[in-house]
Design a protein around this nucleic acid. Structure first.
Length: 271
DNA sequence: AGCTCATGGCGAG
DNA sequence: TCGCCCTGAGCTG
């Protein structure tokens, strides 16, 4: 569920549904209850996202006007129309008006922070392909001097943020880069191509709410092959396709655990 | 009912 | 590198 595109989409959605309105904030589940009480009835003024970090800014709060949310691996947000029903199960934070509600479940992080703390969180992150003002320069500085694999570097949020396991696998495939190459073995043009590819790819992910990475000319229909089904909603080249035929060259897609995460790649297209 | 796995990340060692 | 956090879906039986 949550790579950066999900978080940026949530920032926009929280703003669209609740922005500028006084909202009811509650925390049926323990740890956020005190903070929720402080926010209850305040106006949700602005929302922000950097990488996989979501921020909700409330007006009229003395200190710590930002709710800092990180979904982690399990966190999810559920939206509903009309008055909110009794929460079922664990709900960390519910925001509601008479017209709509949304429930946050299972986040790694949900706490109040002030502007300075928000800034510190953002400062720890590398550039975000989803922020138009960000460039890939700072990431290149890290990558070009690193003996670490490009696969691991792409997952390191201090190098660049927003990219997760799906976009990592897919952008390396699309650019024909072997995931095990050391960062410093890439040349500047290769990195620029990865960065330039991530931007519109992830922007489209924000727009449609899922990860689609297959170019029109490589869809199963265009290639005259039977259509495939991805269990995570989008259409991709290699992510979780171990043992299947590569859409481009037909070679078996490989998988291996790398730095505690599953890596997927085509050994021929990414030789 | 119980197991495994997952688009993430932190702290200990 | 490992254990842990912690939720839901998709298996197995």
């Amino acid at each position: 569920m949550p790579e950066g595109h999900t978080i940026h989409r949530l920032a926009a959605e929280y703003h669209r549904v609740f922005g500028g309105q006084a909202v009811a904030v509650s925390s049926p589940q323990g740890p956020f209850a005190d903070a929720a009480a402080r926010l209850d009835g305040r106006v949700l003024a602005e929302t922000d996202a950097k990488g996989k970090h979501l921020f909700l800014g409330f007006d009229g709060v003395d200190s710590g006007r930002w709710v800092h949310i990180h979904l982690g691996l399990y966190g999810k947000v559920f939206w509903g129309h009309g008055p909110a029903p009794e929460p079922v199960g664990q709900v960390r934070m519910r925001i509601a008006t008479d017209d709509a509600y949304c429930d946050l479940r299972g986040p790694t992080k949900c706490l109040l922070v002030d502007a300075g703390e928000k800034q510190e969180v953002e400062a720890r992150l590398g550039p975000d392909p989803l922020r138009p003002q960000d460039t890939g320069d700072a990431a290149w500085k890290r990558i070009s001097g690193s003996r670490t694999t490009i696969a691991a570097l792409l997952m390191d949020q201090k190098v660049l943020c927003s990219v997760g396991n799906v976009y990592r696998a897919e952008v390396l495939f699309r650019q024909g880069v072997n995931p095990y190459r050391a960062g410093r073995s890439l040349d500047r043009a290769e990195w620029d191509a990865i960065w330039a590819d991530l931007r519109p790819l992830m922007r489209e992910g924000v727009r449609v709410g899922r990860i689609d990475t297959v170019r029109p000319e490589h869809t199963p229909e265009a290639m005259g092959r039977p259509p495939r089904q991805d269990d995570h909603g989008g259409e991709v080249y290699v992510y979780r396709r171990a043992g299947q035929s590569c859409l481009v060259c037909g070679t078996e897609v490989r998988t291996e655990e790398h730095a505690a995460r599953n890596l997927f790649w085509c050994p021929r297209c990414q030789a």
